[in-house]
Computed example of a mutant assay.
Amino acid sequence: MGFQTLPRGNDKGDRPWWLMALVVLAVGIAVIIAFNDIYSQVFATVSRGIVITVIVTFTGFALAIALGLLVALAGMADSIFLRQSSRFYIEVVRGIPILVLLFYIAFVGAPAFVTAYNFVFAPLMADGWIEPLLVRDVSLMWRAIIALTIGYSAFIAEIFRAGFQSIDEGQIEAAMSLGLSRYQRFRLIVLPQAIKVIFPPLSNDFVAMVKDSSLVSVLGVADISQAGKIYASGSFRFFETYSIVAYIYLILTIGLSLVLRRLETRMREKGTRNE
């Protein structure tokens, strides 16, 4: 028996009942928060960490995209040194858990940076132009952002590499025959087509970083998880607190997933019309 072709974007063309169920659940929890004093207090406390979570996620992901793009381009360079350096970076970073990377950057990388900074600018410090830098002067939030940037840049570099290599070599050769420079070939031929391949996995990584940003709480960064941890340890209301923490993360991640999925659909429809 043959298999029926399935519509794109929905496995069997079903209505999104899962989304409707989640909306009903979200509204139900919102009603509980509005009319229950305990849940209202928990929500008011925990929601203070949303701004930090958003800052860490957006800043870390933007920097990870920039660094990942550079690593991907180095991996496709003519220089064997750049290619091997790119591969070394990717394999090493992908082999280290994000939590270990957070600790390493926070408690090894930051002190090393401070030592190097004070060594380089020692003459200026001796003349009184600038003050010596202390480890505590390096924000814990920025240590967390840098760790997330490094951790995700390796995966994003592989996404970029796969997208760029998906372009047919014939198009590159045709562009070269027209006299386009490497930058022009990349901007006019490779990037516009590769972005359709790159966007879906890149959006998945963005949603994943929203969740992984909760790991910064181990450094004491006042995000959603840290706010929940502090409140629960003081009030012993673990069920209420972590139910609200999970609720907020679900709202953020599912809402973001729906927005990104809509953008992906519009990009696909635009590409179809152009063809």
Rank of each mutant, 00 (worst) to 15 (best):
G234F: 09
G2S: 12
V210E: 00
G13I: 02
Y89V: 03
D137G: 11
L252V: 08
L133A: 04
A246Q: 02
T5K: 15
A157F: 06
W17R: 10
G163T: 00
L69K: 09
G128A: 07
E91C: 08
L258M: 15
N10I: 12
L6E: 11
V259S: 09
D212E: 15
I159N: 08
I224E: 01
I244F: 09
A66Q: 11
A34D: 10
R262D: 08
Q171T: 00
D37C: 02
I130H: 11
G255Y: 08
G271Y: 06
L133I: 03
E275A: 13
V120Y: 14
A232G: 02
L260R: 07
L188R: 12
F121Y: 15
G220M: 03
Y39P: 00
E173S: 08
F160V: 00
T53V: 06
A246T: 13
I29M: 15
Q226H: 10
I195R: 11
D168W: 10
F160D: 01
A44M: 13
S225K: 01
V24K: 07
R48A: 05
A74R: 06
L202V: 03
Y247I: 00
I55C: 05
F88Q: 04
V24P: 02
M125I: 15
I29G: 04
F238C: 02
R94M: 04
A227I: 01
L124V: 05
D127Y: 12
E91W: 13
I29N: 04
G220A: 00
F43W: 09
R15F: 15
L250G: 04
W17H: 12
L188P: 00
R268C: 00
Y183D: 03
Q193N: 05
D168A: 14
A26N: 01
L202K: 06
V207H: 09
V259G: 06
L202D: 00
F121I: 07
L19M: 11
S213G: 04
I105H: 02
G234L: 10
I224C: 03
R94W: 02
V54Y: 10
D168C: 08
N204P: 02
V51F: 13
A208L: 13
K229N: 07
G2L: 11
G179I: 03
N36C: 07
R266E: 11
F239N: 09
R182K: 13
N274A: 13
A74G: 05
K12T: 07
A157R: 06
Y231H: 04
R143T: 02
T53P: 01
K270C: 03
L215D: 01
I224Q: 04
F186I: 00
Y104R: 05
V54K: 02
F119L: 14
I167S: 06
P16C: 05
R187D: 00
V51I: 14
G220I: 00
V120K: 12
